[in-house]
Simulated assay, not measured.
Amino acid sequence: MQFLEAASNSPPSLHVIYINTSLETKAYGHELVPTITCTSSNVVQMIFQAFAQVPDLNVWYGPDSYMGANIVELFHQMADMADEEISRIHPEHNRNSIRSLLKRLHYYQDGNCIVHDMFGHEVVERIKGLYCDAFLTAHFEVPGEMFSLATEAKRRGMGVVGSTQNILDFIKNRVQEALDRDIDDHLQFVLGTESGMLTSIVAAVRELLGSRESRCKIKVEIVFPVSSDSVSRTSVNGSRGLNSAIPSDITELAVVPGVANGEGCSIHGGCASCPYMKMNSLNSLLRVCQQLPDKDGTLHAYEANRFKAVTPGGKPVADIGCEPILHMRHFQATGKLPDKLIHHILHGGIPTTNFKKNT
C-alpha cells in the first residue's frame, strides 16, 4: 500500500498489476491508482502503449519483483537497440523515447514468486558449468541472474527471454530448424520457468518429431534446473498416497522438482508448480459436481463470502477488482488502453462499475 500511495502522489500514474494476484489486491490498488492487469505475454507491449498514449506518464509495476526488475532491465537493453528494431516492437517508440521513459518506469521491490525463486545463484552456476552449449530460456518471473544469463544467450542466438508462449515458440522453431537440416543432432534446452510447462513442450516436440519420416536422428533434451532446496526424493512410503494412478516411470525417478514437504510441492502435490495455482484439481471439481443440485444445503455452507467485502473506500471488491481485468481485455482486443482508463489516469476518480453489465 505504501508503494501505491507513492504512485498516487505522482500523477499521471498507471499501476500495471500481474494477473495472478487476488481480487482484493487488484481492488485496493485500483482504488488508489488507475490499474490494469497484465500477463507475461502482453506486459511489454502494454507498457509501451501506455507511454505512447499518455505523455509524461509514470508506470508502476507490481507485485512480482523479479518480473519487475527484468522488465526494467529489458527496457534498458532496448534503449541501445537501433530505431528500426524498436519500431518493429512498437511503431511509436525509438531510442530517445525509451531513454526518456526509463526514469518513469517503477516496480515493487519487496515481493517474489515462490516457484521462480528456485532459479537462483546456485542454479545459474550449475548451468554455466554443465550446460554452456545448451539453448537457455527464461521467463520474466525468474531472478535477475537467470534472466541475464538467458539474455546473453539470446544475443548469441542461443536463448530466449519472455513469456511461456515465447519459450514454447523458441523451442519449436529450433526443433523445426534441426528437422529441416536433416542431419543427426542433439538439442538441449534449459527451461527457466515453472515445471507446469513441461507437458506442453514435450507434446509440441513429439508432434514435430513425428510429423515426418526422416533417416536422421534428432534427440531433444529438456533440462529443468532447480536448486538443491527445491528437490525431494521419491518413495512409495513418503509420497503421501502415491498409487497406481501415478505413471510408473515417474515413481522410478530418484528425485523430482519440489520441496520435501508442505505447500503441496511434493511429487504428489504437483512437483515444483505453484501450490496456489494448483489448488484446483479435477477431482475436487468432480466432487462438487456430484453434490449438485445442492438439495440438502451441503455446498451452501461453503459459499464464498469474501467478495461481499468492500475496499477501504467502501466500494465493492468484486466491482473495483474486476475493472482492471476488463481494461486488459480491451487492450488485448484493440491494442490500446481504453478511453475510460485514460480518463481515470488524467482526471482521477474511480468510475462506478457494473461488472455484470460490462461482461
Rank of each mutant, 00 (worst) to 15 (best):
Ser148Trp: 10
Ile47Phe: 01
Gly162Phe: 08
Ser211His: 08
Asp133Cys: 10
Tyr28Arg: 09
Asn243Glu: 08
Glu194Gly: 11
Val161His: 04
Met328Lys: 04
Arg174Ile: 06
Lys308Ile: 07
Glu145His: 12
Gly210Val: 08
Arg240His: 15
Pro143Asp: 03
Leu253Ile: 11
Ser232Pro: 03
Val161Phe: 04
Arg233Trp: 15
Leu326Glu: 07
Ser281Trp: 09
Asn354Tyr: 07
Gln291Gly: 08
Ile246His: 10
Gln77Met: 01
Ser227Gly: 15
Trp60Gln: 01
Ile171Trp: 01
Gly68Gln: 01
Ile250Glu: 05
Ala134Val: 09
Asn358Phe: 13
Arg104Ala: 02
Thr137Ala: 08
Arg95Gln: 13
Phe355Lys: 11
Gly238Glu: 10
Gly62Arg: 02
Glu24Thr: 05
Lys295His: 00
Gln188Ala: 11
Val256Leu: 08
Arg240Thr: 12
Gly297Phe: 07
Asn70Gln: 02
Asn243Ile: 06
Leu326Pro: 01
Met158Phe: 08
Met78Pro: 04
Arg233Ile: 15
Gly264Met: 03
Ile183Gly: 00
Leu14Cys: 03
Pro324Gly: 03
Gly62Pro: 03
Ala153Tyr: 00
His93Thr: 08
Leu187Gln: 08
Gly62Ser: 12
Lys26Phe: 06
Leu130Glu: 15
Ser8Gly: 12
Ile267Lys: 02
Gln291Thr: 02
Ala304Ile: 11
Glu122Pro: 11
Gly159Gln: 03
Lys315Met: 11
Gly297Val: 02
Leu286Gly: 00
Gln49Ser: 10
Asn94Glu: 09
His139Cys: 00
Ser8Phe: 09
Asp184Gln: 09
Ala318Met: 12
Gly241Tyr: 09
Leu282Ser: 03
Phe48Ile: 01
Ser239Cys: 14
Gly159Val: 03
Gly129Ala: 15
Leu101Gln: 04
Ile250Phe: 07
